[in-house]
Design a binder for these strands. Structure first.
Lengths: 235, 235
DNA sequence: ACCTGAACACCGTTCAAGT
DNA sequence: ACCTGAACACCGTTCAAGT
């Protein structure tokens, strides 16, 4: 035997045996198993038991595949939100809404990477659905007395805060650095010149990413906007 | 001439003609010229006029190089802050502090990518300097009446918000997607079902990343924490 | 119309060698 | 002790060919 046994040599697939949806589904499986940046075309092809080039018949670029994935992720994100209730006072509503957003992203790291950290894009359709969702929240705020401009800015600020926390947490867990792990923190140096931080060493993660930490800032934001609304109504 | 002219064939460099600092400096040059993720070992080697393998004598992994770069970036970040003044009331101080942080990151995209979005790590030394800086802010807040725990959480929340805005802006500019560009936005669909958002279309970027947008949320946060402090003192 | 292996240009990293 | 080209395993993408 001259050519030593090497590859199982997959049999040629009949046409129509894969399609774009299968590829995207497989891509999510691979990404879930490891992480989004472990997703490569060769690995995906192997997972699907397909030649690499076949994928390129359906997606001209890897980026196109990622964009399609992002679209699906956005859909899942939107569907994960409950309908906007109108029995709750707006501060509580806003609080719940973004608390929810955080848990959604936290429970789906691939979604987080696609929508929040990667530079991939979503379709106009997905954008529209996101905007519709935002509009319903803005309507809620406008109904409570905020000007359109302020409603927009309130939504924006709380959104940036929430996503900032999600991203921060995600990046921390991606970098294996236990820099912020308590144990290591203790050995980093003497804390004698930093008495206030020293008292924080017994904390959870020192990074300030617990539920309480998140909700503290969220409550602060909402409270600040309550004040603003009062001033707006008074002025 | 059998071997067609191909490479200029760089002459061998004498030992000691490069060192770790030169490599890091060159890496920043390359990253500045394009962006951090354009920085590759071959490109860097070419820029330095050195064999690729030479870099690996000083940095065992590309990650080591990135970590070193991150360390320098953290130093620059800290030095860019003015000393903490004690003549300003804490709300204004906090406002200025994070307004400053935002501009620092915004003016240095490589620093932003290294410290905020990449998973690279910084040394214990850099971490210490960051903590010392944080401690001085905490001291300021504690002096104003916040408990240690609340001072920590206030700092944390405003930090997350600020960095969230910086990252958001950075990711928007990295993805060429003009999804949020006004012109495209207008053509996306009819806005008739979204009257509130429609009124925002004449905005700057629709993304809500202007200075005013940022400072609106910042002011909201600070205002919320003022309320909290009042309640803490009352209770 | 769809599927494919082989090739290309790139990347990070290693290694056996030069000086 | 430092510097190096060539090689390796990987990646994204293309292409000329199979059915």
């Amino acid at each position: 035997m001259p050519g030593a046994a090497a590859k199982p040599a997959r049999r040629r697939r009949p046409r129509g045996s894969i399609n774009a949806d299968d590829i995207v589904a497989g891509a999510f499986e691979v990404a879930r198993r490891a992480s989004l940046d472990q997703l490569s075309m060769p690995v995906l092809a192997e997972h699907l038991d397909v030649g690499v080039a076949s994928i390129y018949w359906y997606f001209l670029k890897k980026e196109d595949l990622l964009n399609r994935m992002t679209d699906l992720a956005v859909n899942r994100l939107i569907q994960a939100f409950p309908p906007v209730p109108d029995d709750l006072p707006w501060p509580e509503f806003l609080h719940d809404y973004f608390k929810r957003e955080r848990t959604i992203f936290r429970d789906d790291q691939v979604m987080c990477d696609l929508v929040l950290v990667s530079t991939s894009t979503y379709s106009k359709d997905a954008a529209r659905r996101l905007f519709e969702r935002e509009e319903s929240v803005l309507a809620r705020l406008a109904g409570a007395g905020f000007s359109a401009e302020n409603a927009f800015r309130v939504f924006n600020a709380v959104s940036v805060y929430t996503r900032g926390m999600v991203i921060h947490e995600r990046i921390l867990q991606r970098s294996k650095t236990p820099t912020l792990d308590t144990a290591r923190q203790r050995q980093i140096t003497d804390w004698s010149s930093m008495p206030l931080l020293e008292r924080m060493l017994d904390r959870h993660p020192l990074a300030g990413t617990t539920d309480e930490d998140f909700e503290f800032g969220l409550a602060g934001l909402v409270s600040g906007f309550e004040t603003l609304l009062r001033e707006q109504e008074a002025g």
